[in-house]
Simulated scan of single mutants.
Amino acid sequence: MPQLSKVSGFWNTSATHHTAVEDFQGLLTGAMVSSLGFFLLGKAGLLTGGTAGVAFLLHYVTNTSFGFWFFLVNLPFYYLSIRKVGWDFTIKTFVAIGLTSLITEIQPQLLGFDKLNPIWAAVLGGLLLGYGLLALYRHRASLGGVGILGIYLQDRFGIRAGLVQMTFDIGVLIAAFFVVDPFIVGCSVLSAVVINLFVTINHRKDRYIVLR
């Protein structure tokens, strides 16, 4: 069976290289888990940092689609990605963001909650986004924006991606005080901390390589 799998090309035994099938399932599952995290945050009226936080702010202010804003806000960062990271990473990230935006939009038609505590939504949503990001990083992709910059700085200069993200998150969450009430901002801060600590602890280049 292992020999047949190797010949068929479904997966690769190398720790740093993946087949197209492996990349596809990584991007799809990463997007699905991430979209569930975004869904929980949005359902509780929360937000997070990074470009997703900006998309949430625009979503709440304009009462329009989060998925649309998330896709749109990330567009300027693809130039940095192409110039500094490469086409492979950029294309996979574009696909991951597109899938995440789409799945987040259809999620309410497939899933609902009678009760969702904002604090629990912050913790669980943060963990889901952390897992989703880790899955995407494993296959040389991200959820765009500051994540692209964070991955580049970590793999080139050793600056943890989670710390780069956290710095930007602080600015986004400060802006949130003008849009939502302080309790929701506090829960959103908790979610951002959970995401970034999870990524900081678990995303290490000595375990797998995002950029080559």
Rank of each mutant, 00 (worst) to 15 (best):
L58W: 03
A55R: 01
G171L: 12
D169T: 02
T90Y: 06
A161D: 03
H18Y: 15
F39Y: 15
V123K: 08
G158M: 00
S188V: 00
I195D: 09
F70Y: 10
V193A: 03
Q25Y: 13
G9T: 04
L99T: 09
F94Y: 11
I82R: 13
L57P: 02
S34A: 14
T51P: 02
Y131P: 02
A20E: 14
F10G: 02
W87T: 14
Y152L: 09
L57I: 10
I82K: 10
S81F: 07
Y208A: 03
N117P: 10
E105S: 13
H18E: 13
A52C: 06
D23Y: 11
V180A: 03
F39N: 08
L75V: 13
W120T: 13
I184L: 09
I195L: 10
T13L: 01
S188Y: 03
K6L: 05
Y131R: 12
A122S: 12
T51W: 00
S101T: 12
G125H: 06
A135T: 10
M1W: 02
H203I: 05
F178L: 12
Q109W: 12
G126I: 06
P2S: 07
Y131W: 11
G112T: 15
T100F: 01
G9E: 03
I97E: 03
F183D: 05
L58G: 02
V61N: 12
G126R: 05
S8Q: 12
G50Y: 05
S14I: 12
D23V: 14
G45C: 05
G50N: 08
L72S: 13
H18N: 08
D169N: 05
T62C: 09
L128G: 02
L190Y: 00
L124E: 10
L57S: 06
G86C: 14
L80A: 11
F77H: 07
G112V: 07
Q3Y: 09
V172G: 00
V194T: 04
L27K: 06
L80N: 11
K115E: 13
I148S: 14
T93R: 02
S14G: 07
L128R: 01
Q154R: 04
V189P: 05
E105A: 14
Q154Y: 10
Y137W: 08
L163W: 13
R207T: 14
A15L: 09
D23H: 04
V185N: 01
M1H: 05
G186F: 03
A121D: 05
V85M: 14
V210E: 04
R207Y: 06
Q107G: 09
G26M: 05
T51K: 01
A44V: 10
G67Q: 03
A20F: 12
I201T: 07
S191I: 03
G112S: 15
N117D: 15
S101P: 12
L40D: 00
S188K: 00
A55H: 04
S188E: 01
V180F: 01
I209R: 02
V189E: 05
G130K: 10
L72V: 15
F198I: 10
L110P: 03
Y131V: 14
I184A: 01
G42C: 04
Y78S: 02
I201V: 11
W11H: 06
F66A: 04
I195A: 08
G162V: 00
